[in-house]
Design a protein around this nucleic acid. Structure first.
Lengths: 348, 348
DNA sequence: TCTTTCGTAGCAAGCGCTTTCTACGTAAGA
DNA sequence: TCTTACGTAGAAAGCGCTTGCTACGAAAGA
């Protein structure tokens, strides 16, 4: 019923082997023969059977991309960049690779499940994005999985995620700690002393690193930090809104809020505004990531720019073997402080 | 080297057939046997070979999702929703399906290429999101491809995309025309008469429908529309910025701008503000889609809310056969006008 | 007691492709 | 002229799984 290789072979009056070789272009075939085959392919509207091909050749053209939440532009941008780099070998028509995007929702089990599913598909490569979950058992499980994948020939690259000890997965990390430090230093330089911090979910490397950077800056400036000034939440706007309202309750006279990321910052702004506070006259706010929308916020967000697309593109290229892995297999991607309208001197 | 079914079979002292049946759970196996098999699977850390399984069973657990741009939350939200609904049959552990997200960039060839790639993978289903390209040849080519896919047993669902004649693909369409009409009616009701329109790219159904809705409203109100008031661009912020600046040049005294979508509206706001105009005191702005960030814009955007996640989730369920297709195979998803701070009465 | 039925398990034939190895004709070297 | 080499094509053996069919013992019905 569906057209197979041998149907094409029959029509072109050659053996199936020859058709396969024409299609893969990895073996010399006389021009006239090739043409005949190509014509037959066209006539019959033949499409290769991927699974059969993958089985026989023991390779696949699937590339997995693990993200926490594809609806979040932070991950969308990276997924997009990875995808644009995973073109197939030789650039042959139709020879492209397919990106399998897996939404883990930040849940450990789903992360492992998807890794197994990708292993089952014999994925050519896997790119893991976003911060990792900090849980000994889970980290060990992930390490084991990544080792298995690597053994099976799947290239593993981490993007914006800390290295996984015990594996030789390439890691492109983000300077979360340094970025947070710069952001807080910026606020301190403006004269702020009572600085609230709306953190991301606990047990996440990204959350911890950013919070650590913040604390480093405070400590370096000799500013004490009361526990009352840190609230945890998730990485979305709603959470930023709620956490900020709570912070405001605990410490009505804070003059600045450091948010875990830009979305959270937007939520924080909304909460602040609702409390009758102006930004930045009454309270300064900073985000993190510099997602596209942060420039359009009211006021535009001071934040820490992360070159997400560039980093992910590089991760994609490394995953495809089109770029050498950095020496040491680990490299930190630099970000940059972007000062916009959401920060200013504290009210007196 | 890698563990195969028969390795497991050997260890569990059963035939490969039995192992397969335990794993698929589609054939009675004695509890004691099953247990033995499961233990062997666990001991050997066995992972099924997806391609082999797909070949033998002539089915796959891949679901394609075509999007224009996964970095755009409009598509990210839909992709996420589809993905959350494509769980496998019976909810068996590891029995989940994988979402293959294909970024077409709105290019016709890439759309076809990806469709072919998904056909090659024998995808279980394909969900096409976003507006379609209006080009006779392309539409015909897509229709042919969708027919082929359907023949091969791949379920095809369109989400936010007009039906494709000549196929029986289920279509969940968005009310782009009606939404645009409501938006413009809202502006007209406020008293606006000189309304600029920043349209999306040409040859796109979404662009055309929204523009038509806008014109319908103008016509119904007896307001003439000069060509000078419409500018085309892409669906992003930058484009909205540029097009608005241009519009402002051509018609300095316009009092409202209708944008093709929220991102474009944000760009429009930026251009307006740079021209020294206040929103909405001097110029009102409306977006479309009601993406999460539009509530945080300055000022919050009046826009037309599209239930993207709900629609895409439904599309996913229909694609998986977990929900019956709507009768007629076509249904229009309703949206809703959301009035926020970016619109007001025109200046006098 | 003899058959029928049921519950389990194995055999073996593929699924559609890739690839090694072999074969064959012709051009080049001796 | 005879060999060697080369370029090209085919035969056939799998790749690792699924599944229709057969087989066989035990329970149930006659």
């Amino acid at each position: 019923m569906t057209v197979t290789l041998s149907d094409v072979a029959a029509r072109a009056q050659v053996s199936p082997a020859t058709v396969s070789r024409v299609l893969n272009g990895n073996y010399p075939v006389a021009a006239s023969t090739r043409e005949r085959v190509l014509k037959a392919v066209d006539d019959l509207d033949y499409v290769l059977n991927g699974p059969a091909s993958a089985l026989a050749a023991a390779t696949s053209d699937l590339v997995g991309v693990l993200v926490n939440d594809i609806a979040d532009p932070f991950f969308g941008i990276m997924a997009s960049a990875v995808q644009s780099e995973i073109v197939g070998p030789g650039g042959r028509a139709g020879g492209e690779r397919l990106a399998v995007v897996c939404n883990t929702g930040g849940e450990p089990e789903r992360e492992l499940t998807y890794l197994t599913l990708l292993q089952r598909q014999r994925a050519a490569a896997v790119v893991l994005t976003g911060g990792a979950i900090e849980n000994e058992a889970h980290v060990a499980a992930v390490a084991a999985k990544l080792r298995r994948l690597a053994e099976a020939g799947t290239r593993v690259v981490l993007c914006g995620r800390p290295p996984v000890p015990g594996t030789d997965a390439v890691a492109l990390t983000f300077d979360n700690r340094g970025g947070a430090r710069e952001l807080t230093e910026h606020l301190l330089a403006l004269g702020h002393r009572r600085i609230g911090y709306v953190a991301g979910p606990e047990e996440r490397t990204t959350t911890r690193h950013r919070l650590e950077g913040h604390r480093e800056a405070l400590a370096a400036a000799g500013v004490g930090e009361s526990d009352g000034l840190v609230a945890h939440g998730s990485y979305d706007r709603t959470s930023g809104y709620g956490a900020t309202a709570e912070l405001l309750c605990r410490e009505p006279d804070l003059t600045a809020v450091v948010a875990a990321n830009d979305s959270v910052a937007l939520g924080a702004c909304a909460a602040l505004r609702e409390a009758g506070l102006r930004i930045p006259e009454d309270v300064s706010v900073v985000g993190f990531d510099d997602l596209p929308f942060s420039i359009d916020a009211a006021p535009p967000l001071t934040t820490f720019h992360l070159p997400l697309a560039e980093a992910a593109a590089r991760a994609g290229r490394i995953a495809m073997g089109r770029e050498a892995a950095p020496k040491g297999r680990i490299v930190e991607v630099r970000g940059e402080l972007v000062v916009r309208g959401s920060t200013g001197k504290p009210r007196v």
